[in-house]
Design a protein around this nucleic acid. Structure first.
Length: 515
DNA sequence: AGGTTAATAT
DNA sequence: GATATTAACC
């Protein structure tokens, strides 16, 4: 555990050791993602017994435990009770249930906090304070507390008499008192920074925003606004980034292929997914949808990608395009040519899109190739994509799914390079749907005068409406009252993520999707 | 001071 | 070998 200063000069604990517990695998994965975004060191399990074992084992020490409330094996409250009885470690509860009695019960049993699912990044960035507070009276107990205090004192010293760097270092290393130097130093190990997909995306966004001239470490750091990230981290990453650009440029020149494509779709950094060019054809009379679930050959992300590209050439895309601009097909899609979409109910988006930025509690989702709905101001696809293309075949089933689980499942042909995923806050997603979908029969969005919030009425977007091709819109205007009202996630699935999709499909071995 | 580059460590 | 950290240079 160590502290780093972010660009505001605040301290933030990097590598705080968190044990995350959630019975639901998808929720757990999501939780882990958020925690990792906070740059905590996360250990995770779905199994409460295992969690207790880990904690009792003491091989690994933890600063804080985060657990869900509703569980089948050991009730969250029980778990909380055991932990607070046996050991001295703060516990934070996470639950989709906002019942006051539940919250009270948790607090009574010793919970430090009670967060509602899905948890937000900002909330998670604050939990380290519980660790500090817990150990204020006994700093040696926690290395993180100790380090913050150390840092505080050394900062004070520095401001008091401009102490030298060496002095500062020695103060940090040996501690103020020297009474328990071993305790503090033994549990302190520097965690090597890893540039996650999300961080890299942020990095790229910053660079794009700044342009080549202005893209220097400190400025990038400021734009990225990631707690704990240092100028050195960014500088290092920038160095690597530039090296890769140089390399690519060199090979491009060799091939005389014009401008190098240096955007995130083609970058190789950190295993970002690189688009495959292969166009091996599928039999034209078989819709690719039907090739997915029982296909043993679909063992690699490459194949999944190929499948995805194939599927986009089929009529359903035409159908979708019809929907895009508010003209649902007068006749149903020729579904007789398609077999039902297999059951991908396991495939919930946070498990597939760990880089997702959660905006405003529960989310509505709108998805499609880059020239589909979200660019039209009416966002119709949430209600018009036919059931052969989307699980939960209309808006209301999606609303139900969202209100119940905070999640919506999508078939995998929507994931892959070329797919944009848009996340709207529940508020304006509902708003759009309410004006749109809840009146069966009246499905013409041209006639409906949809009263979208101003910030969504961006003229650039409106202008794009009706045009055949739309390029990805950068820097979508954000809701003034929201941290971020509208996020785009695109073209950056890692191989692992794609592989995982395949795995999720295969998990259904005992109950294979019917074709 | 901080951007850049190179050396070193993991 | 790749990439993060640290040092050194400008």
């Amino acid at each position: 555990m160590r502290l780093k200063e972010n660009n505001h000069g605040d301290q933030f604990p990097v590598g705080m050791r968190v044990l995350a517990i959630d019975a639901n695998f998808v929720c757990l994965k999501y939780l882990v993602t958020v925690l990792q975004q906070c740059r905590y060191k996360v250990t995770a399990t779905t199994d409460a017994e295992e969690a207790l074992q880990i904690l009792r084992n003491k091989n690994e020490e933890f600063d804080i435990v985060i657990t869900d409330v509703v569980r089948e094996d050991i009730d969250g409250f029980k778990l909380l009770q055991i932990i607070s009885l046996e050991m001295d470690i703060p516990v934070v509860m996470v639950s989709a249930n906002d019942d006051v009695s539940n919250i009270m019960r948790s607090i009574k049993h010793g919970a430090r906090d009670y967060l509602l699912k899905p948890v937000r990044l900002q909330e998670m960035m604050n939990i380290w304070q519980h660790v500090i507070r817990k150990n204020l009276d006994n700093p040696e107990k926690s290395s993180i507390t100790k380090e913050i205090i150390d840092q505080k004192t050394s900062t004070l010293k520095r401001t008091r008499n401009q102490s030298t760097k060496e002095e500062d270092e020695s103060t940090k290393e040996e501690g103020e008192t020297n009474t328990h130097p071993d305790i503090a130093s033994s549990s302190r190990k520097k965690s090597r920074m890893t540039w996650t997909q999300e961080l890299h995306e942020k990095f790229l966004d910053a660079i794009q925003e700044l342009g080549n001239e202005e893209a220097v470490p400190n400025t990038i750091l400021k734009i990225m606004n990631v707690p704990g990230l240092t100028r050195e981290n960014v500088a290092s990453h920038l160095q690597k980034y530039r090296n890769i650009l140089k390399k690519q440029k060199a090979t491009m020149n060799q091939q005389k292929n014009g401008e190098p494509n240096l955007n995130r779709n083609s970058t190789n950094m950190h295993g970002c997914y690189t688009a495959y060019q292969s166009t091996s054809a599928l039999p034209s009379n078989i819709h690719p949808v039907n090739l997915v679930p029982n296909s043993e050959e679909l063992a690699s992300s490459k194949q999944l990608y190929q499948y995805y590209m194939q599927s986009r050439q089929y009529p359903m895309e035409q159908g979708m395009h019809n929907h895009v601009y508010g003209n649902p097909p007068s006749t149903p899609l020729p579904t007789e040519n398609y077999l039902p979409v297999p059951d991908f109910k396991l495939l919930k988006f946070p498990s597939v899109f760990p880089g997702i930025k959660v905006v405003d509690g529960c989310l509505g989702i709108s998805s499609g190739p880059s020239n589909t709905p979200p660019f039209s101001p009416s966002i119709p696809d949430v209600c018009y994509i036919p059931s052969t293309q989307m699980l939960g075949d209309n808006a209301s089933t999606q609303i139900d799914a969202i209100s119940q689980h905070g999640l919506v499942a999508w078939p995998p042909q929507y994931f892959g390079p070329g797919t944009s995923l848009y996340i709207l806050s529940l508020e304006h997603w509902q708003h759009a749907v309410k004006n749109f979908a809840n009146e069966p029969g009246d499905t013409n969005c041209e006639r409906k005068n949809i009263d979208l919030p101003d910030y969504m009425q961006d003229p650039n977007l409106t202008d794009l409406k009706g045009k055949g091709k739309v390029k990805a819109v950068q820097n979508f205007p954000e809701h003034p009252h929201m941290e971020s009202g509208f996020h785009q996630y695109r073209n950056s699935l890692t191989d692992d993520e794609l592989t995982m999709m395949v795995k999720e499909v295969k998990f259904n071995d005992d109950d294979p999707p019917k074709l």
